[in-house]
Design a protein around this nucleic acid. Structure first.
Lengths: 114, 114
DNA sequence: CAGCATCCATGACGATACTG
DNA sequence: CAGTATCGTCATGGATGCTG
């Protein structure tokens, strides 16, 4: 099951809510899974698919494009045949990893005491 | 505009994906905004509505109930008239704040260099 | 004040098939 | 291999109105 942060469609302009806007970085389905898979180093498109079996190529592409546009991941096309594309976290993207880890950590604690 | 982490509706059982499951703590629309509003101390239902104008009472209730069930927030009913209910972060819930801050921080940096 | 009950609309996601 | 193209669906949230 994917995990996505849905954007609030309030009548107010989005700029009015920097918190929401920043959090939307990780808001797409499978986004955190992608970041998670990339935390140990570069991965290719098909490797990511293996890491996250339920994600469809369409959605994976969408997420990768978003993250690339945001500056979270870097896309590296090797001009080989067959084509090969590597994705890796940027420096800033890597900073998201500990934050996600922290949330997951709290999640585990919550489960244990629940 | 709300911000929600959408659950992956994969065919696999959710337990198969602890990452996704943990992240879903902050997955509801306006969830992070609620945690954010509570970070400085207890707030009442109507105060939260003022902090997050676009949220409807229905959704706010839903989020608070979820967070309460998860152990992230504590609900405190004062037996007064008119009724008054305070919400506050639990100790574990408070641990989410720095993690969210970290993500927001990265978000800002990404915007600046973009 | 602090909710709950309804109804409805939206759009993100899932599945499938095809291509340079 | 690494995507793109289509299409359908359903979960999730918005709006409104009512109540203890």
């Amino acid at each position: 099951m994917p995990l996505k942060i849905r954007k609030n469609k309030s009548p107010q302009p989005p700029e009015a809510c920097p918190l929401t806007e920043c959090m939307s970085i990780i808001g797409g389905a499978w986004t955190v899974n992608v970041i998670w898979s990339l935390r140990a180093g570069p991965r290719r498109f098909s490797e990511l698919r293996l890491d996250i079996p339920p994600v469809s190529p369409k959605v994976l592409t969408t997420r990768l494009r978003e993250l690339e546009a945001r500056g979270v991941v870097r896309r590296d096309v090797k001009p080989t045949s067959p084509p090969s594309v590597e994705y890796e976290l940027t420096e800033l993207g890597a900073e998201l990893v500990p934050a996600i880890e922290a949330i997951v950590d709290v999640g585990h604690k919550l489960k244990q005491q629940a």
